[in-house]
Structure formats: structure tokens, C-alpha cells
Amino acid sequence: MKYQQRKKALVLLADGTIFYGKSVGIEGTSTGEICFNTGMTGYQEIFTDPSYFGQLMVATNAHIGNYGVNNEEVESDGIKIAGLICRNFSFTHSRVDSNGNLKDWFTKHNLVAISDVDTRALVSYIRDNGAMNAIISTDVDNIDALKKQLAAVPSMEGLELASKVSTTEPYFIGDENADIKISALDIGIKKNILRNLAKRGAYIKVFPYNSSFSELEAFNPDGYFISNGPGDPEPLVEAQAVAKEIIERDLPLFGICLGHQVIALSQEISTYKMHNGHRGINHPVKNLLTGKGEITSQNHGFAINREETEANENVEITHVHLNDHTVAGIRIKDKNAFSVQYHPEASPGPHDSEYLFDQFIANIKASKKVLS
């Protein structure tokens, strides 16, 4: 696509600030909370991560699309971001095992994307002023109408989005003859989480976001998992009830990201919306139990209250984020339950934290041994 043929586009922030760019080729308008990801690779996994549902993604990498798309590198059943904002968009790509270019993939999923935006300035503005709702559009001559449309977009705070991305019916992953069975509560689960559990010898039944403990228990699992996902964790009262029941029964439990927040809420630890959140693949975390550092993949706009966690006699902080000292992991004392705020399955990202899946499986095996 020639540069001069591309239509003008804009980013309009909730406070009235405007950044201009060019349409990637799909005309239209899209709204959501604006956020940015600092990862230098893995854009396809990011775009398909259910945790990003309802968000306009700003890519800090200066080049998006240069290696095309691969049908195997998706984390869900399709694109989950509300729209893309980038600096340079590559309409051509170079990669041996590519299945096509990013533009055609966006067209297939009807995703509004704009490029030629000064993303350095935009990200700097968001860092200073915080995450906020925004609108991207090729309708650059109707600013007043866009402002009215943007004003009607609900705040991410208090917004329940797990129901928008969760499975509607239970399904199975792994070898049905495996020695370990896990019930997984899907509040926005990524495929690579399920791959990591399955390759460690688990047979997983994935349940819808609003499933009860009795429904998960009916599978007769050896352990329970609560997934990542989008939106505010506070409205997920059903998931919190499930987590509380599992913990009270001292059954093996592992939670990631939104699941981590749900577990904290079940223990009467509150959550809060962060100024910007953590989104990238190079976030430093310290494991307080081992003293070792980990470079982690993160994607969250909410966090659990550290003061309340430290004051809770039933909960121990196991991991901290070294940039801002937010809680990155907890365990429930005298119970078989732990969780982390980041993504040990990465995809994209480093594999420093994969040991957490091994820890979960070891907890399950120890529990099975005790019960037998």
C-alpha cells in the first residue's frame, strides 16, 4: 500500500488530547482503555491475549508486522485487543514459516489499526497522565462526534470482562489417561498455560468463568487453576467464592494474573487500578523465598494492596516487582495455594518462571500421596 493512498487517522484521549497518524487500511472507529506494551517481539501473541480485551494497544516497538503472522502463534481464538496504534507498520514481511501478512490478518478480524503515530510522545504522555479511555478513528473530521462516543465508554475500573472472553462450554486439554487431573477456571485463559500444564502430564478440564466449586469438583480433579483475564477482578464474586472454597478445603490451587487477584480478594485483600499497569516481557521480579531474580512477562492494570497483604496473617508475599515493589506473588500459609501476578507461561517472553508450573504439579503430587 502506497503511503499517499492511506487515509488520515487519529487517537483521541479522554482528556481531549489528539495524536494523528495514518490508517493501516481498515476504516472505522474503535474505543477502549489505552495501554502500551514494551515488548520488542511477540506481537501476535499479545494481540490474541484475552487479558487485553477492551484495550487499545500502543506498541512501543518501532516496527510492527515485519515478520508477518503464524497460525500457531495465537493465545486464543482470535484477536482480543480493541485496536492497534503503532509507529511503523510493515505491509510486507520476511519469515520462512509465515502464513501471511499482518494487514490481511487484521482485515480478516476487522481490526482498526493506525500507524505513523508519534508513539514515543504518546507513551510518554500516558506514563505521565495515566491510563485512560481513548478512541481511534479514520473519521478525523468529526471530532465532536468522536468525543461524544468516547464519553459513553465505561471505565475499566469496576468493569467485568471475563464473561466476554471465557469459554461458554467446558472442554478438555491433554491426555485423558494422565495421572493428574486439573479443573481450570477460565476467566480469560491463554493457550500456552494449558500447554504448560498438559506437557507436565496433566489432563485439564476448562470451565466457564461463572462455574461453581461444585461444578469444578465434579471432575474429581487433583488440583485447581484460576487463569489470567481482562478487566477489574472485584466484580468476579463467583470466582472469588470458588477460590475461597478451594483454599478452605486445603486443595492444590494455582492462580495467574487475574486469578492471582481473585485469590487475594478471596482472602479479604483489596485490589486497585494502577496508574499505568505492567505490560511487557522484561519486568524484573525477585523471588523472596529463594532470593533469585526473574525476568518476567507481565500484562495487568490492577494489583493487590501490599499493606493489606503484609497485614494478613494468613498470607505471605513470595515475589515482588523490583521496579515499583508491588506484590508479584503470594502463598496462603498452611494451605496448598499460591499465585503470581505475572505470566510464567510467557508467550511472548522469557522462560525464567516456568518452574512455577513444576511447583504446582509437585504440590498436586504431594497432595495425592498424602490422600492415598
Rank of each mutant, 00 (worst) to 15 (best):
I193A: 11
G301A: 08
S297K: 09
A59V: 11
I246N: 02
L197C: 00
L146W: 07
H319V: 00
D116E: 13
H278E: 08
F172N: 14
N192D: 07
G78C: 02
I114C: 00
G223K: 03
N66E: 11
D49H: 14
P344C: 04
D352R: 11
T138Q: 01
T41E: 10
N66P: 04
D118E: 04
H351F: 14
R195K: 15
C35I: 15
E217S: 09
P344A: 03
N66M: 08
T326I: 14
I193Q: 06
Y67I: 15
T326E: 13
T296Q: 05
A14W: 08
N196F: 13
K292N: 11
H275N: 05
N336T: 15
Y203I: 06
D118R: 08
G68E: 01
E169Y: 10
N192H: 15
E33Q: 13
E238I: 15
R195G: 07
P252W: 12
Q359C: 11
T296G: 00
T290M: 01
S211P: 06
S266V: 03
S51H: 11
T60D: 11
L161Y: 05
I114V: 02
C257F: 12
L197I: 02
F36I: 02
L13T: 04
M156T: 12
A178Q: 04
N66V: 09
P154C: 05
G291M: 03
V237L: 09
H300E: 00
P233K: 09
G158R: 09
Y3D: 05
H275E: 06
R120C: 10
L371M: 13
S98T: 08
L371T: 14
L251I: 10
V112Q: 05
S353N: 06
T92P: 05
E248T: 12
F357I: 00
A346P: 07
A62N: 14
I361Y: 05
L146G: 00
F219H: 12
D358C: 01
S76N: 07
G280A: 04
F36H: 04
I281P: 06
S51C: 06
R279T: 14
R87C: 11
R306G: 00
I182M: 02
D179M: 09
K190S: 12
I26Y: 15
L10A: 01
R195T: 13
I295S: 10
N323H: 13
E27L: 12
N228G: 14
T119L: 01
I64P: 03
S23R: 03
S211K: 07
A346E: 01
V153H: 10
Q298G: 02
N312G: 02
L159V: 11
T119I: 05
N71H: 13
I46R: 12
I18V: 10
D139C: 07
H321L: 13
L122T: 03
